[in-house]
Structure formats: C-alpha cells, structure tokens
Amino acid sequence: MQPAFRYFHADTPIHRLHPLVKIAYVMLTLVLVMYPIRETDMPVLLIWLGLSAVLWTVGRIELRRFATLLKILFGTFIFLILIQGFTYRFGETPLIVIGHLRLWEADLGVITKEGVWFGLVLSVRILVATSALPLFVMTTPTSAIMTAMSKLRVPRTLTFMLVSALSFTSLLFEMWNSIVDAQKLRAFDIDRMNVFKRAFKAYIPIITPLILLLFRKANDFQIAMETKGFGAPVEPTEIEILTTRPADYLWLALIVAVFVGCTVLKFAAW
C-alpha cells in the first residue's frame, strides 16, 4: 500500500487544480480552525468537513492510507471527549454520575452532556485541521509546490525543507517497520505489549536505531542534494509551468464561498 502523505500520480480535477487554489484551501482551513471555539460551532465545522470530503473523493485519496493516523486520532478523540465530559465548566446536564468532586467550577465526578458535546466539537475541529494538508501534498507534485511557493515569495530553502521532510516521511515509515521486524526477531514483540509497557519501555529498542539511522541517511541526503547544486546563489529554473484554467476560478470561488458562509454562520450565532 502507498504510504500516507506521499504524492500519487493521477488525473483527477483535484490533481489538475492550480496549486495556489489548494494552498488557499489549506490556509482558509487553518483560519477556520483558529477561530475562537464554541459549542455551537459543530454545523460550521461539519460544512467545512463536507467540503474536504468532496475534495478527497474527487481527488481519489484512499482513506485506508491513513489507517494508522486515524487510529491515533480516534484515541485522541476518546480522550478529549472524556476529559471534556468530566471537566467542562459549563456542563449542567449529567449523563453519568460516578461521584462528586468539585474543583473550581467543574464537578469531576460527573460526565456532562455539554462536556461530551464540546469534546465532540473539539474532535471535529482536529479532524478538519488534519484533512487539508494531506489533500495538498498528495495531489500536488513537489515541483509544482515549489513553483507555487516561489510565486508566493516563500524562500526556496524553506519550501525544500517542507518537501524533503515529506519525502523523508515514507523512508521513516519503511525504517520503522524494518526495525520493529528486526526486534521481533529477537523475541521483542511490541504488538503483544500493553499500552503502558509500550509507552515506557518498548520504544527504546526501536527509536534508538531509528535516530541513529536517520542521522546517517540525512548525511547521505545532504550529499545528494548539494552535489546537485542545491544552494547555488542563482534563481532556480521553474520546470513546472503553472497555468490557470476556468475550473481553477470555479473551485476557488466555491472554496471561498463556503468559507465566507461558515464565517457568517459562526459569528451570527455570537
């Protein structure tokens, strides 16, 4: 299976979309999730998540590539919902009562309906925030990202740091899996350990070789880049010629319209 966060070549409307439109979508997503949050934000977040779902579907991005990430996110959501359920200070309607332990404005022994709801809103906000970047990097070739970034006057080194980090991600996953296999061969079976044992003990035999290998690979990577003229004090040639088509304007208009609609909806409730 192809790893997550890696560009895959396909001919979809999202792949053909101008990178700057996709950058606009990423930026507007970030703005939206940075608005002050309230428990009434759920419709706004769901609308934007709906837009993201449309873009993901049209871009033919497979959700199963994100199985590991989704597992981590799911765990985070459960944690958030529980924490908010117990501690949300505006919680009034008890759902489950374990006991009573008042601390400032919250009763830590009671899971409240409002707290659970707020935890859900926070979870959806995280889902919205994490949905934008994969769409951008998985449907945009690195050369197009670099050209688009240079049009936005982002320094080339900064852009390259981003794209090479993405390229390193798949290498990182491969190394991680190889190390886990190597340690399993010495009867160190991480898959059979409980969460606490994993957190406190299991990762040392895996992370130590990973770090040592990463240092070595990073060195080779630097050699490969610099012996190909990276860092030369000249204006780099842009190989990717970015052309704007009517479809780009239509998608941009749709994205901006949804964003404006979400903003109005959000602040109308204040």
Partner: peptide
C-alpha cells in the same frame, strides 16, 4: 534510496540543472 527525493522521475532529473538556473 537516499539520492532520489522528488515525486516523479521527471522532477528528479530536473532537480540538479534547475538549481543551477
């Protein structure tokens, strides 16, 4: 593995000369 870092072969081949303008 460590000498290939672009997402397509075309971009990979262009990387060096593009850096030199």
């Amino acid at each position: 593995e460590v000498q290939l870092f672009m997402p397509t072969l075309r971009a990979e081949l262009a990387f060096g000369p593009a850096n030199l303008g």
